[in-house]
Design a protein around this nucleic acid. Structure first.
Lengths: 329, 329
DNA sequence: GGTTATACTGCAAGCGGTTGCTGCAACCGC
DNA sequence: GCGGTTGCAGCAACCGCTTGCAGTATAACC
């Protein structure tokens, strides 16, 4: 029912090979012939068959993207960017959402690998011992996680976290808390270490709380701990937790931004829309997504790229109204 | 490099056809042979080549899912459900995010159609005149939009909207507003009509505002209009808008749930976590997603299904704390 | 014991493209 | 005018798997 190469060839009075070349290796064919073929193909509505092409070419033009949770606002920008950049290069993106179950990652990645040319993995919580197996799956680029011997695009969260701590310090906060994210999260480690270092450097009193799941509900819980400790500045693992903290503070009559300052991470759309608007560390997920595609394609197409190419993107603090000067008691 | 059918056949001392049948049409092969083949295949790590199988079989085992915006919290549940159900049936899901650009839908659908066996389209804003063309693309199931002559899974939003209006009426609200969603949105039409009917029936004064984009920011804007009109009960097109309304009300010193009641639609995760928690109409996106897959597969596999099968799912109001008794002035 | 059913297995022809190699003609330079 | 490029198109094999049909061995039947 669909128009095939052979149909076009017949209509053009040419052999299949010539039509094939006219359409995909234009320089190997006479210019006038090529134009004729292109015209006829267009008129007939010819569309090359993906499976057939994949079969001989050995590639599927599909790339896989694995994320822990589509619903987590951190990921949509990455997903969109990956799709967009992929499309620019004629690649379709297959998304695997592992629903925050790190144990599913390897099997899902294996399954997906059979259909795609390469994988982009944005799963910060994968246990370390799985990384090697993931890595062995072929062209892989990790997002937001540096893996020795593998290509990766990471966001230098330290910079932004540093700015966050400095911001609190500048506002006069002395007792601050860091609300840890999920236990095995690589980004949590990065964020935590940066906060630790910065507060030590600036002579702030730092309390670590958590670990917390990356959910608003965790923040609600955390808020009570924060209040109990007499802390005035809070840096949360992510925006969701920060939003939970704010909600609970308000509920308990504590004014965010006045009594207690709260900082999130991710600069998700909600942060600008929460009340009060949330000061947050902007993490360029979209840039990371595009870059990941570029790196992956470079590896797949075997351009002279070391396959442990390492790209680092900067993060930065976006100050809004959830932070303010410390009360001078 | 990869193990092929032929490799397995050679190792088993059988022909390719037998191995093929042993693996995919078990009843056509001797039981002991089959077991032997299965064992050898497993030991050799044989994985059938997707492209090759698609080429002969004429199907890709991929299904396409088109959504307007992954970042909109209404869609992740649908996406997850579609993926999950698809996987149960050995189908992989290709997601197309059209970034809220209805004009992109048709071309994207066309492109996608070449790689998938069928399409699930969850785009409530597609202009009507495109529907026919989308429909012509082959097996298609629409989600949350009834299309004549096409299979669809719609959520009966009227029920939930009805409950929402009744809820406000019961709380004593007399002047209520409906905040319209995007202009061409099919679901907005449904929701609006239901609200209109219910408030007429209950003798409430209804003001329509909008249309608004489905974004928190729109709600912020809407809130001021609501206050200016002296309205006490608000039903927003969706949770995002409702959250924006709440944020702005709080900002202006108006107490949500006490001074003004706010109801959203979608019952997104955020609604339970906002402050105050948001009363919202629960729309079973996940159920719709699974159902859409079932319907689509039924059509693809040509089970005796009318291809304009119509499934309706119920919605219902979840009361939280953003609604309360009307002030008795 | 011969014959027909029965149960497997193998052969070979594709599915729709891609690609190395061959063939042919026009063109080059000497 | 002849051998030697050069440019372009066709042949045919092949990618890995499926499947209709044929072949063969065994079972079942009279």
């Amino acid at each position: 029912m669909a128009v095939t190469l052979a149909d076009v060839a017949a209509a053009a009075g040419l052999s299949g090979s010539t039509v094939s070349r006219a359409l995909s290796a234009p320089e190997k064919v006479n210019a006038t012939t090529r134009e004729r073929v292109e015209r006829i193909a267009r008129e007939m509505g010819y569309v090359p068959n993906h499976s057939a092409r994949s079969l001989t070419a050995g590639r599927t033009d599909l790339i896989g993207l694995m994320v822990p949770d589509i619903a987590n606002p951190f990921f949509p920008p990455i997903i969109k960017a990956v799709q967009a950049r992929g499309m620019q290069h004629g690649r379709t993106v297959l998304i695997a959402d592992v629903d925050e179950r790190p144990a599913d990652e390897l099997p899902r990645a294996r399954t997906m690998r059979r259909q795609v040319d390469g994988l982009i993995i944005a799963s910060p919580r994968t246990p370390d011992d799985l990384m090697d197996e993931l890595l062995a799956l072929g062209p892989v680029v990790f997002v937001n996680r540096a893996v020795p011997g593998a290509a990766s695009v990471v966001i230098d969260e330290a910079g932004g976290m540093d700015q966050a701590v400095e911001h609190l310090a500048a506002l006069g906060h002395r007792n601050i808390a860091y609300l840890n994210g999920p236990k095995r999260s690589w980004s949590n480690t990065q964020r935590r270490n940066a906060v630790l270092a910065a507060s030590a450097r600036l002579g702030l009193e730092l309390v670590e709380l958590g670990p917390f799941e990356a959910q608003v509900q965790s923040g609600v819980h955390a808020a009570d701990l924060v209040i109990a400790r007499g802390i005035t500045g809070v840096i949360a693992y992510d925006d969701l937790i920060a939003l939970g903290v704010m909600a609970r503070l308000t509920e308990r009559g504590v004014r965010t931004g006045a009594d207690i300052s709260v900082i999130g991470v991710d600069d998700s759309p909600m942060s600008a829309m929460a009340y009060p608007t949330l000061t947050s560390v902007h993490v360029p997920g979209d840039a990371a997504g595009s870059q990941a595609v570029d790196t992956l394609l470079a590896i797949i197409e075997d351009r002279q790229v070391e396959d442990d190419e390492h790209v680092v993107l900067d993060s930065r603090l976006i100050v809004r109204s959830s932070t303010g000067p410390a009360r001078t008691t």
